[in-house]
């Protein structure tokens, strides 16, 4: 292991906090943003969370892929809790069935 472990940890903490406050600091320097920036910001949750999840659809297996689709469809109608529960139940069942 590194001999300067705490230095690395501290540097990583600073970099992480910088990304977390940075977007807001930069944006708040400009007044009211252009409508295209506005639209992009409005899409951040959908775009980034989708990109985060996308590999799980293909890099795990059919049971995982199907359970993600089920959770997504259930969430369109039901609560978030129902969606996660439906995905989890179908995942355990499919893993059992598909081995």
């Amino acid at each position: 292991m590194h001999d300067n472990t705490y230095l690395i940890i501290l540097a990583c903490a600073v970099v992480t906090y910088t990304t977390r406050i940075g977007g807001h600091m930069v944006l708040s320097r400009f007044g009211s943003p252009h409508y295209r920036v506005e639209a992009a910001l409005e899409a951040v949750p959908t775009a980034v969370l989708t990109a985060l999840v996308a590999p799980s659809l293909l890099n795990q297996g059919p049971a995982e892929a199907i359970s993600i689709l089920i959770a997504g469809v259930v969430a369109l109608r039901g609560s978030l809790m129902m969606s996660v529960a439906a995905g989890l139940v179908s995942l355990v069942a499919l893993r059992f069935v598909l081995g």
Binding site: A71, L76, L91
Partner: peptide, 16 residues
């Protein structure tokens, strides 16, 4: 299935 709760949770949030 606990290893896969986070992807399912994020999927549910995206759909929201």
């Amino acid at each position: 299935g606990l290893d896969f709760i986070l992807p399912l949770y994020f999927t549910g949030l995206v759909a929201g």
